[in-house]
Design a protein around this nucleic acid. Structure first.
Length: 707
RNA sequence: GCGCGGUUAGCUCAGUUGGUAGAGCGCGUCAUUGACGUUGACGAUGUCAGAGGUUCGAAUCCUCUAUCGCGCACCA
């Protein structure tokens, strides 16, 4: 027996060398598995595309969970004889990274405004590439058996080019279009945001009632009201039957007299407030719809920095927050303020990154028509081409796909894939090259990250024509966080169907959030963020992996408790000592199956075979949380506590065939257990394999046991 | 308001098609030095949120209620 077993298991030491052994073996790459004949040439493919971690910082606990899950699937399938490919990636994470970088600039007393966009881009690129290396090293330290030779970065030239091609195709087919409409504007980040990049929170705000000619109008936003010259009410509202649609009247307003026009429209809720409202089409989605319907004038009141425009006269240039009380004060002094309801609750939409209140603005943007695309996505679910784990997410997916609005794909940030479009007066052309003729100006906007990420399964496998694409697309499983069920998953499905007429994967496995030990969401402000790498340093990667997997059902959030990680470190040591016992008890044993296996050993082998059956079924049905626990329980409480205990007597038996039978069985049980455990605890199992199977291939490519 | 999910041992959570409740941590008693003290043996603790229903039988299926969490939408 090797001396290494005389001291307790040292995860750090093992992990440092084991990953290199795997990596150098080349077996992360299915081509090499075939070349070296550990996988059959005509084996069925199993492919996972890794959701590319953002290359803008350290991995968090959620990454550790998803890497573990995907690694378990990958290792299991590889051992089961599949031509297994797990493609890693790195995400430039457009807006996310730009926000991270802007914070960095802010700390340095700098700002992106005033910087040359090219310089800014270069700086963010350097920052990202540096972090990309860091991120990759962390992914490796978690044991990910992905094929690094196929890694892709979301800003690789071919990725950029293919993303742009898709856009041009969509433009030619009129699925992507240029449109002027209400957008979500973050005045801090100076960009528009999609619906999923905003978050709403309920707040209590003063609700003001003002006199507007003969009417009383209510509003929470007096600062937008300068230009309000349309007063809207429901056509059937009995209180206002005397007023006719289109009727004009002169009313006293914030900065003097204004000519107001009566508009009658069903959009007004008669029950709400006084049933009368004035509209501000430029800064409200609902108002915009009304204005468009009657072809009303629209005027911008608030500029892109959140300041009032000259229309506000004396308030011009003032920040809206500061202006609001002053405007109310002025209206009050003119006798136009009727009352203030201080307990009004409304929902405020905010930038999900900086919580700046979103200012609806009207702006030309690029949109993708969603209706026909979401219909295709729904059909693929109907046809059973797309399965969700857990299955209740199918409902959420359907809900999301039945309520789609056109998708704003342009962002006013430099860090991203440029939108290949050109403008000249009223003309628009989508093209990578500058169109013929003079006067064309290139679009400076970039794509929403999800526009490129949505094509990731295609692009990562080499769409549209590579050898890999033919072999590995459609992929098999998309494993990602349940919060991406509406942000990302539908977009991948849509692009897969749109570009290739196939769903990009047949199974969507959704994991939950990793919370702190009390089950509370981790957040920097609460200070309860657990860095997975401090846990792996302390207890080993295998232990963290087990702690994240056991008992964690798909879709359910998991509480990450240090105690639990520690418990699996103990387990690792237990395995180490089982090995120590088995190796020391089988010294001199030739390893060959003896002619006689005594009855007790047969029973033991049968028991393990039952476990293999059970675990294999769990693995096939994605119940990793059960499989892991069963193997754990078997090794500790059957193999160690019972079988090994009893073997001590048998090994002293006078009959050499009893001894041989016992030795053979102990080795068999240990080695088989290691195979079963390998996808979950790859490091320690591989490490031990080096001592139990000196002459054979590495455990990673050893066949999964048959019962 | 609508939707989804949870409510099981002190804590964090499992419980796959309905068949006398499980894990880890924690707790109690005992053991003690040749696999392992990062240990072993034994043990305690649950009206499975509540009520009603289906069933020979319900933590599991159905209905309602309470409560927590999350998501979406909220109209000036």
């Amino acid at each position: 027996m090797d001396e290494i077993f005389l001291s307790p298991y040292n995860p750090k030491e093992a992990e440092n060398t084991i990953y290199d052994i795997w990596n150098k073996s080349g077996f992360f790459n299915p081509d090499i598995c075939i070349e070296k004949e550990v996988t059959n040439k005509d084996a069925k493919a199993f492919t996972i595309v890794m959701p590319p971690p953002n290359a803008n910082g350290d991995l968090h606990a959620g990454h550790a969970l998803f890497i573990t899950l995907e690694d378990i699937m990958t290792r299991y399938k590889r051992m089961s004889g599949f031509k297994t490919l797990w493609i890693p990636g790195a995400d430039h994470a457009g807006f996310e990274t730009q926000v991270v970088y802007e914070k960095k600039l802010e700390k340095e007393g700098r700002s992106r405004f005033g910087m040359d966009p090219k310089d800014l881009y270069k700086e963010i690129l350097d920052f990202t590439l540096l972090n990309k290396k860091n991120m990759e090293a962390q992914v490796k330290s978690l044991g990910a058996s992905c094929d690094w030779s196929r890694e892709k970065f979301t800003l690789d030239p071919e990725v950029v080019s293919k993303t742009q091609d898709t856009f041009i195709k969509m433009w030619k087919e009129k699925i992507a279009y240029r449109g002027k409409r209400t957008i979500n504007w973050c005045s801090k980040h100076q960009t528009s945001l999609s619906e999923v990049e905003t978050e709403s929170s309920e707040e209590t705000s003063p609700f003001y009632y003002f006199k507007y000619g003969p009417f009383e109008i209510g509003t929470v936003r007096p600062e937008t009201k300068f230009g309000d010259k349309y007063v809207v009410m429901h056509p059937e509202d009995k209180r206002y039957l005397d007023y006719k649609h289109g009727q004009k009247m002169t009313v006293e307003w914030i900065n003097g007299l204004i000519e107001a026009t009566v508009i009658k429209d069903e959009a007004v809720d008669m029950e709400f407030g006084t049933g009368v409202m004035t509209i501000t089409p430029w800064h409200s989605q609902v108002d915009y719809e009304i204005a468009k319907k009657y072809d009303l004038e629209m005027e911008q009141i608030i500029d892109w920095r959140g300041k009032l425009l000259p229309i506000a006269q004396e308030f011009s240039g003032m920040n809206i927050k500061e202006a609001r009380p002053k405007i109310v004060e002025k209206l009050k002094s003119k006798g136009l303020l009727i009352k203030i309801d201080e307990s009004y609750k409304n929902v405020v939409k905010k930038c999900y990154k900086c919580s700046t209140i979103i200012e609806p603005q009207i702006k030309d943007q690029w949109y993708v028509k969603m209706e026909s695309l979401s219909k295709m996505a729904l059909e693929s679910v109907d046809k059973g081409e797309l399965k969700f784990i857990p299955d209740n997410y199918e409902k959420i997916f359907r809900y999301w796909m039945t309520n789609t609005i056109d998708w704003n794909i342009s962002r006013q940030i430099v860090w991203g894939i440029p939108i290949p479009a050109w403008f000249r007066r009223g003309e628009v052309i989508a093209s990578k090259e500058k169109p013929e003729g003079e006067g064309w100006i290139q679009d400076t906007d970039t794509f929403d990250t999800w526009f490129s990420s949505g094509q990731w399964p295609l692009i990562a496998t080499g769409f549209p024509e590579s050898k890999d694409f033919k072999e590995y697309y459609p992929t098999d499983v998309m494993e990602t966080g349940h919060d991406l069920i509406f942000k990302w998953v539908p977009r991948m499905v849509i692009f897969g169907l749109y570009l290739e007429n196939k769903v990009p994967f047949h199974t969507v496995y959704l994991h939950g959030l990793v919370n702190d030990a009390q089950g509370k969401k981790m957040s920097k402000s609460k200070g309860n963020v657990i860095n997975p790498l401090t846990l792996t340093d302390k207890y080993g990667t295998d232990a963290l992996r087990m702690a994240l997997i056991v008992g964690n059902t798909p879709g359910t959030d998991v509480a990450l408790q240090e105690n639990k990680v520690k418990a699996y470190k103990n387990f690792a040591n237990k395995i180490w000592n089982i090995t120590r016992f088995v190796l020391s008890s089988t010294e001199g044993f030739d390893g060959k199956k003896p002619d006689l296996i005594i009855e007790e050993d047969l029973t033991n082998i049968l028991e393990l075979n039952e476990l293999i059956k059970d675990v294999t079924k769990d693995m096939d049905e994605y119940r990793f949380y059960l499989a892991a626990e069963k193997i754990y329980h078997y090794m500790w409480h059957s193999l160690a506590d019972n079988i090994i205990e009893k073997s001590k007597e048998k090994l002293k038996d006078e009959n050499p065939s009893t001894v041989k039978s016992t030795q053979y069985t102990l080795l068999y049980l240990l080695k088989t257990s290691l195979k079963l455990l390998h996808p979950f605890m790859p490091f320690i199992t591989e490490k031990i394999w080096q001592y139990t199977e000196k002459d054979s291939n590495i455990l990673m490519v050893t066949k999964w046991p048959n019962p």
